[in-house]
C-alpha cells in the first residue's frame, strides 16, 4: 500500500484512481469526526463532502514535510466544523444537534451477541448526547484524543494551540463529560 504522501503526489499529476484511493482510505475517519462533532448524520455527510472538496482544491498546499496527511486532513475538517458550528450558532440551532436516530455502529464481529451489540449502540448514543452538551472547545479535544486517537502533538497542530492548552482542554473535557454522563445516569463499566 502506497503512503498517503505518494498518493497526493499522484493526485497532483491528475491521477484519478490515486484520489479515489485517498478518499476511500480517509472517508470513514472524516465522517466519524464530523458525526461525533455535529451529532447529526445528514450534517456529517454534507460536511464530509465539503471537506474532501476543499482538500481536492487545496491539495497543492499540503507539504509532507510539515506532518502526516491525516493530520492535515483533520485540520481542514476541524476548520470546516468550526465554521459550521458558528453558522449553526448564528441560526440559533446549536442546541438541537441530537440525532433522532442513533447510528448503529457496533463492531460486527461474529463473536458479539445481539445483547452486547444493543448495549454498544445504546452506549454510543448516550455518549453522543453527552458530547453534544460539552462546549465545542472541549468536545473537539476529547473527540480528537479519545475517539480519533490522535497524539497530543498532532492535536496541537490541528487546533493550533500550545501543548499545555491541549492537555488542559482534554483533561477538563474528560472530567466534564464524565460528570455529564453521570448526571444522565450512565456509568460505563
Amino acid at each position: 500500500m502506497e503512503p498517503d504522501a505518494q498518493l497526493v503526489q499522484l493526485c497532483l499529476r491528475g491521477d484519478g484512481p490515486a484520489w479515489e484511493e485517498l478518499v476511500r482510505r480517509h472517508a470513514r475517519r472524516v465522517y466519524g469526526l464530523c458525526y461525533r462533532f455535529t451529532g447529526n448524520r445528514a450534517s456529517a455527510e454534507d460536511l464530509s463532502q465539503e471537506v474532501f472538496l476543499r482538500v481536492y482544491r487545496t491539495l497543492a498546499s499540503y507539504q509532507s514535510g510539515q506532518g502526516a496527511f491525516s493530520t492535515w486532513l483533520t485540520s481542514v475538517s476541524r476548520n470546516l466544523l468550526i465554521d459550521h458550528y458558528r453558522r449553526m450558532r448564528r441560526d440559533r440551532l446549536t442546541d438541537s444537534i441530537e440525532d433522532a436516530m442513533p447510528h448503529l455502529e457496533a463492531k460486527h464481529s461474529p463473536g458479539r451477541t445481539p445483547e452486547s451489540l444493543a448495549q454498544a449502540s445504546e452506549l454510543s448514543a448516550q455518549l453522543q448526547q453527552g458530547l453534544a452538551r460539552l462546549s465545542p472547545e472541549l468536545r473537539e479535544a476529547v473527540i480528537l484524543r479519545d475517539l480519533q486517537g490522535l497524539e497530543y502533538n498532532e492535536i496541537q497542530v490541528v487546533l493550533q494551540v500550545p501543548e499545555g492548552t491541549v492537555k488542559s482542554r482534554i483533561n477538563r473535557g474528560r472530567i466534564e463529560l464524565a460528570r455529564i454522563l453521570d448526571q444522565m445516569g450512565m456509568r460505563p463499566a
Binding site: 476511500r24 472517508a27 470513514r28 455527510e45 464530509s48 463492531k107 455518549l127 479519545d146 475517539l147
Partner: peptide, 21 residues
Amino acid sequence: MVRGLRELAPVEEPPYLVAKI
C-alpha cells in the same frame, strides 16, 4: 469513560458517500 470511548467502533460512513465525493 475514557476506556469506553476508546473501545467504541468508528462510525461507519454511508455506503454511497465515497461515490458522492
